[in-house]
């Protein structure tokens, strides 16, 4: 009895520290244990909620494990063909310029079959956000080699490890799009620790802000994991990611807006 009263006393609005984001649906996430997709969805939903964008957003879901993203975030969605999300986003943003438009794409989707759309959308500086989940593999189809698969890394279509002489080198799409004048803000983040989650969330919030100001394409890569495709436990996968993915795909900003740079310089001048 005493215990029951105890719990009742604890469950009070003022004691609430964590709850499901309103903008997330009640559907159960279809991801494997430890997969980064779920965390990335969650912070995206939080931003949409916190920025009051639920009624203002059109998302484009990819073909990949996150194909069912539209089941999990309670906004309007379009489901693209494999790799074509940026083309859909281009038309949506041009026809509905006041809406917040983003794509969410895996590395196979964005950096293999969708390379042309990715590059040309960024090159035109379409005023959209591209969220790029790089887990170095095709998760959905059962762990085949992706354009981002690391040299020597095993996958079901590189069973002896990626031989770069025969299969090409891993493609750093984020570095490529950062060189294009059309991109405004390009950054590479991760969601495997609370600190990194906060950084990624901040990056998404910035991208929302820039889109409101019509600044051009914002491109956020999230280096993520695929415990199933990598054939590792979730903990092993995150360790492996830190040891192998991060050195090749270093976290941090690749392109920050000129204004922000200027601000930073003035700030540091003041400090001097």
């Amino acid at each position: 009895m005493a215990q029951a009263t105890g719990i009742k006393e604890i469950i009070k609005p003022e004691n609430l520290v964590y709850r499901k984001t309103k903008v997330m649906t009640d559907n159960i996430l279809s991801y494997c244990p430890g997969c980064g997709h779920g965390t990335a969805h969650r912070i995206l939903a939080e931003i949409i909620d916190e920025e009051g964008l639920q009624s203002e957003t059109i998302g484009i879901s990819p073909v990949g494990c996150s194909v069912l993203l539209y089941e999990f975030i309670d906004i309007d969605w379009q489901e693209a063909a494999h790799g074509r999300a940026p083309a859909l986003a281009t038309a949506i943003k041009r026809l509905l310029p006041d809406k917040f438009v983003f794509t969410y794409q895996g590395d196979g989707d964005l950096a293999a079959i969708g390379t042309a759309e990715t590059i040309h959308t960024c090159n035109r500086g379409e005023n959209i956000l591209i969220i790029f989940i790089n887990n170095g593999i095709y998760g959905m189809t059962g762990g085949q080699m992706a354009p981002t698969t690391l040299p020597g890394m095993k996958s079901s279509t590189s069973p002896y490890g990626r031989d770069v002489k025969l299969m090409g080198n891993p493609l750093k799409m984020t570095d490529i799009v950062a060189t294009l004048p059309g991109t405004y803000y390009v950054t590479r983040q991760s969601v495997h620790t609370p600190v990194n989650v906060r950084k990624t969330k901040k990056a998404i919030r910035k991208a929302v802000h820039y889109q409101k100001l019509n600044k051009g394409t914002c491109f956020i890569e999230i280096v993520s994991n695929c415990p199933s495709g990598w054939k590792m436990t979730p903990v092993e996968a995150n360790k492996w990611m830190e040891a192998n993915m991060f050195p090749f795909y270093p976290l941090g900003d690749l392109k920050v807006p000129a204004e922000e740079n200027a601000q930073k310089t003035t700030n540091s001048e003041k400090n001097d």
Binding site: G108, A112, I113, Y138, T141, G142, Q144, S156, T157, S158, P159, Y160
Partner: peptide
């Protein structure tokens, strides 16, 4: 290029080398 339900063809060939 991988796609279900035929990815085993490419996978088999990569393994058989």
């Amino acid at each position: 290029y991988p796609i279900t339900p035929q990815s085993e063809i490419l996978e088999y060939l990569m393994e058989a080398d």
